[in-house]
Design a protein around this nucleic acid. Structure first.
Lengths: 347, 347
DNA sequence: TTGAAAGCGCTAACAC
DNA sequence: GTGTTAGCGCTTTCAA
């Protein structure tokens, strides 16, 4: 084992004061003689005293620690959403002197359930951040029921009232569809995230609503589901290509699938941006560097992470924020993958 | 606040036994009457008892927690290396019932120093994982000196003896250079990671050594440094383009810079894979989806993360591994960005 | 201004 | 088998 730590007791004995006094001296209590404080300080420095965090936590009954249980079937979470989001909460947490405990579990798995149980009882962490809310979300239900501090990124479909930050995916998708319609597209396919994810639902809604608004019929064969990975996008898109007449545009429910889609189309000799328009959703860093660069909807994930974290810390400390339902409006980013106006030699 | 927890004391009182007995019953000690055990178990279930982790940790003087302090100037760590690596350690840690505490700090910043001090004293975590080792690495020095359990991904240039996992970057780079030489390239430029990072040093070595081996002179204008991001790669590569005669190939010290490089070249109307060869290093998931797909060196980051973590846990538990210096040999992945044989109409 | 003492919730050596 | 007791290292009343 490594070097045994110097405790407050050692320090106190060394200086010749009581443990109490030593503790107060270091904690800057104003009822300690200046000279005593000095002596304690110096001795602490000299002995290399460092408070035992666990003991302090037990005594204070708080951990100053936040938990982030990443819901991903793929343990490697290649999805940059997670790392960007985590960076946001991590940095905000650090700024406010909180630690961040991270783990990954498959959505709705027993392991995930256990992780949440452990978190809500046992004082493992002081609060949790929940992402990728789901229909009938058991995590949120558990958290609400046990009255445990948490903030979600995303809403749910039940009538639970809980603090969240969310982006208005429906509005975002509307921007995207309008953009394509504005370019003359009428036959627009949609590659959706899997059912059960709330943000997928909102995005799908946005697609259907906007198409309807512009009196554009949608055949059900135009809408399929993918698993949100590049490969998933590549594999799924095949089903959208055998339509007659063909689609002129494909919107993907996230950028990763859009990238897979473009890749597959290009392998088939189809020119993205000229023969067909492709758009994604998220604006991951990668999106600006695809060939052609990807038209997409930008969500400021890092900032959302910060904001979610900040709200959680407020809640933990009992400073209830005035607004616990924050809704952000995403922004359309037009790049080359959606091409230029239809017609004029194209089609 | 949330519901107050049921403690062992509550439980014991409820059942009518001592705290000790309750504790032992739950811990499956064999000196507890079967009937008592049952009663305690049931009561625990019924009252929703959950042990307080902090108290247990204080008593056991271990946290069953690993720390990972991510060294990145960009707090958003867009570099997929970090998330992939973290996934590896996180999952391995979880498998062995360890928690993972994560934070980010700029390399060599005061914040980083403080984080390491805090970690090595104060019982914050039981062990640390260090990545992106540096020349004269203060983190490693501190850790060695305080005799704190850790494992590094990467070696250092001092003569400290510490446990590490590393990939043989020099050998990897050799493969890459040989590949290009095999295609007929002689004027091969190198876009290096910034000085000070050990893996950059090894990669650079591999480049110089292999060029020398094949009697290919390297002009110093062929080697420049970038900051390991796409943008950095794009910005830096300009300096490699005004050479006369021009380079026929550019190796980048990591994939992100290679992607930026390809992007910039293409914007200048240069056809990557035909007019010039480009190669990267890392094989991030993205590398297979660039256009053209990127020739690179694969390191199994996820697995390296697992292995590093596993070694650390062994060390923490005093099961010194037989081999604490693990060296992995990376693999060449040939894709289209390096093109085909030079000559024959090309050049 | 300081110290004694209690206690955070748990484990474990040692009686009984 | 079970309970008593003594901590783990710290903070915080409460008296002195």
């Amino acid at each position: 084992m490594w070097d045994v730590a110097v405790t407050l007791k050692d320090l106190a004995r060394h200086v010749g004061v009581s443990i109490t006094t030593a503790s107060r001296a270091l904690a800057d209590y104003d009822d300690v003689a200046e000279e005593t404080r000095q002596r304690v300080r110096e001795a602490a420095e000299q002995l290399g005293y460092y408070p035992n965090i666990t003991a302090r936590r037990l005594q204070k009954r708080r951990n100053d620690t936040l938990g982030f249980i990443i819901p991903t079937a793929d343990p490697r979470f290649a999805d940059p959403f997670f790392s960007e989001f985590m960076a946001g909460i991590g940095n905000e947490a650090a700024r406010k002197d909180y630690d961040l405990l991270v783990s990954t579990h498959s959505p709705d798995s027993p392991g995930e359930k256990a992780a949440y149980e452990r978190a809500t009882r046992g004082g493992w962490v002081d609060g949790l951040i929940v992402v990728r809310t789901r229909e009938n979300d058991g995590r949120i239900q558990l958290l609400c029921q046990s009255n445990f501090p948490f903030v979600a990124f995303g809403r749910t479909d039940d009538d639970l009232n809980f603090p969240y930050v969310d982006e208005d995916s429906t509005a975002g998708m509307r921007l995207l569809v309008q953009h394509l319609i504005g370019l003359g597209h009428k036959r627009i396919g949609y590659l959706s995230p899997p059912a059960g994810l709330m943000f997928g639902t909102y995005r799908r809604c946005g697609y259907y609503e906007t198409m309807a608004e512009y009196d554009l019929p949608v055949d059900e064969s135009w809408v399929i589901e993918g698993d949100m990975t590049q490969r998933g996008g590549a594999d799924a898109v095949g089903k959208l290509l055998n339509l007659d007449p063909p689609l002129t545009a494909i919107i993907c429910g996230n950028d990763l699938m859009a990238i897979g889609t473009m890749n597959r189309l290009q392998n088939l000799g189809i020119n993205v941006g000229r023969d067909i328009a492709v758009a994604g959703f998220d604006d991951i860093p990668w999106a600006a560097y695809t060939a052609p660069p990807l038209t997409t909807i930008r969500q400021p994930i890092y900032k959302i992470g910060q904001q979610t974290c900040s709200m959680l810390i407020n809640i933990i400390n009992g400073w209830e924020p005035e607004n616990t339902h924050i809704m952000l409006t995403p922004e359309l980013i037009v790049r080359e993958s959606s091409g230029t106006r239809l017609g004029n030699g194209r089609r």
